[in-house]
C-alpha cells in the first residue's frame, strides 16, 4: 500500500462540450513528492486539476488517488477520500459569510466529533503555521490577497490531508510573500509527509519547490522530469515557455485564412 503512488493518472481524456481539452494524459506522483504543473494559459492545467479533484468527470481514462480509482468510487467512498485531500483554490474560495477562523474550523466541525475547544486549538495551530494568528475574527473581504491565499492554505491543511492541491499559490503576491509561501509548501511536505500538486506560472517558485515538473501544452504532457531535466530540455515549446519567448510557430496559411473567414456558430 505504501508503495503505491499517491496519484496515478492513466490515459485521461476530458472534454468541455465538443472540445477535447485533455488529450490522453498519464502521470504518476509518488508519496511525499511535490509535483509542479506548468504550462501556458489555456493549456488545461486547471481542467487537469479539476479532474484530479473529481470536480470534472473525465470522458475516459483512470484517476487513482491513494490507490483508489475515483471514477469508480461511490458517494461514501468519495466522501472518505475527500477527508484525505486538501485544496487551496486560485482565488482562495473562502466562504465570505464566515470569518477566517470559522472557515478554517469548518472541515473539523463537519467531519469530526471533536469538542469546540479542541477544534479551536487545532484551527489556531494551522493559522499559526501560515502566519495568520490573530486574524481569525476577520472576514475574507477584510484580508489582502496574500492573506487570503494563506488562509485558504490553512483551511486546506486543517484535516492533515495526505494530498494537497494548490492552484497558483504565488500569482499576484509580492516576491517576499511568494517566497514565504514556497517555504511553507516545502515545510508541509517535510513535516507532514504530504504529497503536493502545485499549479503555477512562476518559474522561480517552480524551480524552488518542485521535485518534478510536468509541462502541459494544449492538453498534452510535453514532458515530466526533474527541475534540471526540464531546464535542459531541447524541446522548443518548453524552452519558449521557460524563457518567456513569444510563440512563433509556423503559420499554416490556409488554416489561418479559414479561421479568419469562418462563420460564427449559431447561438
Amino acid at each position: 500500500m505504501e508503495k503505491m503512488p499517491a496519484i496515478q493518472v492513466e490515459n485521461l481524456v476530458s472534454h468541455y462540450g465538443e472540445r477535447e481539452i485533455l488529450k490522453n494524459i498519464s502521470l504518476e506522483v509518488p508519496r511525499g513528492e511535490i509535483l509542479v504543473i506548468m504550462g501556458g494559459s489555456g493549456s488545461g492545467k486547471s481542467t487537469f486539476l479539476r479532474s484530479l479533484l473529481g470536480l470534472k468527470k473525465a470522458t475516459s481514462g483512470k484517476v487513482q488517488l491513494l490507490g483508489k480509482d475515483i471514477l469508480q468510487m461511490n458517494e461514501s467512498e468519495m466522501h472518505t477520500m475527500r477527508k484525505n485531500m486538501g485544496v487551496a483554490f486560485q482565488g482562495g474560495a473562502l466562504f465570505n459569510s464566515l470569518t477566517v477562523g470559522e472557515n478554517v474550523r469548518l472541515p473539523l466541525r463537519e467531519h469530526t466529533k471533536l469538542d469546540e475547544s479542541t477544534i479551536n486549538i487545532m484551527s489556531r495551530m494551522k493559522l499559526e503555521v501560515v502566519n495568520l494568528a490573530g486574524f481569525e475574527d476577520l472576514k475574507p473581504a477584510e484580508l489582502s490577497g496574500g492573506m487570503i491565499k494563506r488562509a485558504a492554505l490553512a483551511r486546506a491543511i486543517v484535516m492533515d490531508p495526505k494530498l494537497l492541491f494548490f492552484d497558483e499559490p504565488s500569482a499576484g503576491l509580492d516576491p517576499v510573500a511568494a517566497v514565504e509561501l514556497d517555504e511553507l509548501i516545502l515545510t508541509l511536505r517535510d513535516a507532514m509527509r504530504m504529497t503536493i500538486v502545485v499549479v503555477t506560472h512562476e518559474l522561480e517558485s517552480a524551480y524552488k519547490i518542485a521535485d518534478r515538473i510536468t509541462v502541459l501544452d494544449q492538453g498534452r504532457i510535453l514532458m515530466t522530469g526533474s527541475v534540471d531535466e526540464v531546464k535542459n530540455s531541447s524541446n522548443k515549446r518548453i524552452q519558449s515557455l521557460l524563457h518567456r519567448q513569444a510563440r512563433n510557430e509556423d503559420i499554416d496559411a490556409d488554416e489561418y485564412l479559414k479561421r479568419l473567414t469562418r462563420k460564427s456558430p449559431i447561438h
Binding site: L55, M78, F89, G91, A93, L94, N96, L106, H111
Partner: peptide
Amino acid sequence: SQEIDALQVMGI
C-alpha cells in the same frame, strides 16, 4: 467564487 467547489472537495 468557487466556494461551491471548495465545499465539494472538502467532502461537504
